[in-house]
Design a protein around this nucleic acid. Sequence first.
DNA 1: TCGCCATGGTTACGGTTGCAACCAATTTGT
DNA 2: ACAAATTGGTTGCAACCGTAACCATGGCGA
Lengths: 149, 149
Amino acid sequence: MSDDSILALEAFLPYRLTRLTDAVSRDFSQAYRARLGLTRPEWRTLATLGQYGTMTATEIGTHSSMHKTKVSRAVAALEQRRWLTRKPDPGDRRVEQLALSKAGEKAYRDMVPVARGFEDDLLERMKPAERKALMEGLAALERAALNRS
Amino acid sequence: MSDDSILALEAFLPYRLTRLTDAVSRDFSQAYRARLGLTRPEWRTLATLGQYGTMTATEIGTHSSMHKTKVSRAVAALEQRRWLTRKPDPGDRRVEQLALSKAGEKAYRDMVPVARGFEDDLLERMKPAERKALMEGLAALERAALNRS
DNA sequence: TCGCCATGGTTACGGTTGCAACCAATTTGT
DNA sequence: ACAAATTGGTTGCAACCGTAACCATGGCGA
């Protein structure tokens, strides 16, 4: 019987999630920070454009869950690095179509195996049944936490 | 057969974790921010002292996974609010023993059911088998990700 | 067509963070 | 016993972030 007036922080779901995410995210960020000198918003923008080819800033934000100011600054940084180009949208002059340059695509191709390797290393430390449970549990939590209208 | 040269960001574990944690953490932070006007480091410090009674700043940081500067600033803020008191440690004059004041304890007691309610609401949106999978998967991922020496 | 609201995107600003430098007190090695 | 290294804790600084304000363009109703 546990004391109802005490909250065990180490068992509290929001705390466990942030601690876990901080650790995983920090470890992974070292991979692209050390390798490419990218910030996290820049990496996400690179990854989104690498995955989808051409997108607007708003679409990047929607797909990668980033605030539009983050996207704006990341796009500006990648553009300055010549990893990204802007093209005016012929149908709507508010919009710019964004795409990776050749150098940006190369950086993306370099990073994909690194990202896969990082994820694989992490998952290989778990038993198959544990991996299955994690995937199932995360999917359920995503349904529970993200789809709150 | 999927394209090996493309990384699906929405299926990438570090991304899924950060997105999930951002959502959960943001929702929960509204509870204590609106109710008590606390920042996240302040809430964690309150929760840690509420759970353990008396601790040093370093111990708080270890238990709640916070950088010592965060702890230092959170302690200063809680002290200014008169929710926390410092006592010199008789055996080591570098250290200060920290504890909640009466007002701090009251705030803690008020917050515990709110935190429990938040967690319960979230978990109730999941089926029992999904909850079980989540707990098992998170525990395994904690072993895999946090215990990297 | 004209006025008004919505949308895409950028920027200024205040607040938060982590790193590194720092001070004081303690421990360690010789 | 004393210099050097370590530890507890605070603070200055630069980078980063979200909010809100803003500009330009587009959509829409009267």
